[in-house]
Design a protein around this nucleic acid. Structure first.
Length: 612
RNA sequence: GGAUCCUUAGCUCAGUUGGAUAGAGCAACCGCCUUCUAAGCGGUCGGUCACAGGUUCGAAUCCUGUAGGAUCCGCCA
């Protein structure tokens, strides 16, 4: 897969984590891993100890008629063992001891070993899952300290649609890693030190020379309006433009009056960002550590690089020459860390950030999420940080680039032209469309609901749909901006899953059943029950994948399939009217589905509704 | 000129260390509400996995080349 190539470039080091029981919470063994171990034992028994450590190539089957899992290892051993794969598979199968988990394994095709789980085993697993607060998902042991580098817009500007992806994706990573028990530090590397700030500071000082008035204006003002007015002044007046430039210089020199104005602009900006983040259900405990934060640490980056011998002066600029990046003549390309005028640039800041995070925060892993256009930049930064000796091998630098948000023309959605849709506008549109959809349904079904119910449902469904539309696509591929697609409420969308959840709550209400206090004695008979059960037991694997590969669409896919399987079960099996013990067993399936959906959606940053 | 990413059904996309007959959603068409919310379920239609070679028991997946698209490339972030 393409993402892996990135990871090899940046020298990815994995830190092992082990699964152990935590506290009183019952932790189930992953079926896949358990079967893997069993096959390895069988391999050792059949062919000698040295075969006990090879990968059994165990995967889920793609067709139920082959069972639930298949081991593909026999084919890969044909050459080294100089034997035919079917014979090898038979030898492995003879040594297999999996009686407690599945039916007798069968050999099929060129040498697949197929496993079909026993119903009894599934029932026991479900019971354990039902008794667990965490749905049987283990916490990482030991936990890692992980920084999730939140998307970092320039806070001098209004948020636009291009900020949606990084916000939503970064939030998902943080939530998944946190749920898996890691110590997550959410850090926003906001642009709070650059040229656009000079413009706003100059405008604030010009319009509100009196500090008291400036304070009031920034407390009650609106960033978008403020920015628009400042931009207009900037574009039409040369003197103002010069004032803005001077403001940046004085800001970086530490001028106290300018610093004060800068603080005000930052506050104004953070307030307006928070409003949107709240609407988007983005964590409140994000730490703002903008470019300004690293200002004091920039000189040390240069001296450190000099000491390690990496720093080279070129045309008056301080550079590090990169390995593997060459210009058209084949000469190494430099990365400038200090401009010829003595100023620093974003490379310096990013290097200072890595250095600080490893030495001061003592992290085990840093997860970066930016648009793919910055892939080269981060590959270079990581290289220099490693070569400078700031990042030991034990620290993992994960880069998760995402595709560009494109316009209908297939080109990058521009932010400066002013054509980019403000994020607020997109979110409001989503809510409005959802609202009218809900009202239409209520009318058709002759239902009446309170205004509060309608508004809340419109917000949760509308925002959920937008976030899901984004997360359910492969992170790497480009994203064509389309209202219609983002706001679609049918098919593989957030409302589909929210609706499955609502169905369970409906059963609980109708039957007057408290799902949390059920005694989970399972009795699975119908095919749709077994299919749902098997899927329910795979959530831990999926979350582990998301942790490693940083692909939220894997979780979306899982939740969509879970909802599909639940809907099929719901369609074919009546719950409340069933005889005991089937009735209770089915109620437990409902409960586990609802809790899995709620958890999974919450990890995507999407909230569920009890009714809709 | 160099680098990175992408190309799978009419549209939007999945496809997990290479595995059995390439899967969803949307759109189109046909069925299913006196039964736990039909934002649902079932079915039909739809593919030269951009193209050409190679690697092997096996390739949408790995390698090489070609075509097309996007993005980046020493003093912006």
């Amino acid at each position: 897969m393409t993402v892996l190539r990135f990871e090899t470039i940046i020298d990815r080091i994995c830190v092992n984590s082990y699964v152990v029981p935590v506290g009183d919470d019952l932790v189930m063994k992953s079926t896949l891993n358990e079967l893997k171990n069993r096959v390895q034992v069988a391999l050792a028994a059949a062919f000698g100890d040295e075969y006990g450590s090879i990968d059994p190539l165990l995967v889920g089957t793609n067709n139920p008629k082959f069972g639930d899992y298949q081991a593909n290892v026999a084919m890969s051993l044909a050459k080294p063992l100089k034997s035919n794969p079917r014979a090898i598979a038979t030898q492995i199968a003879e040594q297999l001891n999996v009686n407690d988990i599945c039916e007798t394994p069968s050999i099929a095709g060129p040498g697949f070993i197929n496993f079909k789980l026993k119903t009894k085993y599934l029932e026991a697993q479900l019971k354990a899952m039902h008794g667990s607060d965490r749905l049987g998902i283990a916490k990482a042991q030991p936990p890692q300290k992980i920084i999730v580098d939140y998307p970092s817009p320039n806070i001098a500007k209004e948020m636009h649609v291009g900020h949606l992806r990084p916000a939503v994706i970064g939030e998902c990573f943080a939530r998944v890693l946190e749920f898996l028990g890691h110590d997550v530090l959410k850090i926003s590397h906001v642009g709070d030190w650059g040229t656009p700030f000079g413009m706003l500071i100059a405008y604030l000082q010009e319009t509100y020379p009196d500090p008291q008035a400036a304070a009031e204006a920034s407390n009650s003002g609106d960033l978008a309006t403020f920015y628009r007015q400042a931009k207009q002044r900037f574009d039409e007046d040369e003197t103002f433009k010069e004032n803005a430039r001077q403001a940046v210089v004085r800001l970086q020199a530490g001028d106290s009056a300018v610093l004060e104005a800068w603080e005000r602009v930052c506050q104004l900006s953070k307030r307006s960002y928070r409003k949107i983040y709240d609407l988007l259900n983005i964590s409140e405990d994000i730490i703002d550590r903008g470019e300004s934060f690293y200002n004091p640490y920039l000189p040390a980056v240069i001296t450190d690089l000099k000491e390690s011998g990496l720093l080279v002066e070129d045309n008056g600029a301080q550079c590090v020459f990169l390995e593997g990046f060459t210009n058209k003549d084949g000469d190494p390309l430099p990365m400038i860390v200090q401009k010829s005028n003595g100023g620093y640039n974003y490379s310096t800041t990013d290097l200072a950030a890595i250095r600080y995070r490893v030495t001061q925060d003592k992290v085990d892993r840093i997860v970066y999420t930016t648009d793919a256009g910055q892939a080269n930049h981060f590959t270079q930064i990581f290289q220099v940080a490693r070569r400078a000796g700031w990042v030991p091998d034990s620290v993992e630098l994960s880069y998760a680039p995402f595709g560009l948000v494109q316009g209908e023309d297939g080109k990058r959605l521009k932010s400066r032209s002013g054509e980019a849709v403000p994020l607020k506008e997109l979110l409001d549109e989503a809510i409005a469309r959802t609202r009218s959809d809900i009202e239409k349904r209520l009318k058709e079904e002759e239902r009446t609901e309170s205004e509060a119910f309608i508004q809340n449902a419109a917000e949760k469904v509308g925002i959920g749909a937008i976030k899901y539309a984004d997360l359910s696509q492969n992170r790497v591929s480009n994203y064509t901006f389309s209202y219609d697609r983002m706001l679609d409420l049918k098919g593989n969308t957030a409302p589909y899953m929210m609706y499955a959840y609502v169905r369970v709550q409906g059963i609980s209400r109708k039957g007057g059943v408290d799902l949390s206090t059920l005694d989970a004695d399972m009795k699975l008979t119908e095919e749709s029950e077994l299919t749902l059960a098997k899927h329910l037991l795979q959530m831990d694997l999926v979350l582990d994948e998301v942790k490693t590969d940083l692909l939220p669409n894997r979780l979306c896919q899982y939740l969509f399939e879970l909802s599909q399987k639940f809907n099929q079960f719901y369609d074919r099996c009546s719950v409340l009217q069933a005889e005991e013990p089937t009735r209770t067993s089915r109620l437990v399936l409902c409960d586990l589905t609802a809790r899995s959906l709620k958890l999974g959606l919450s990890l995507l940053g999407i909230e569920v509704l009890e009714r809709m």
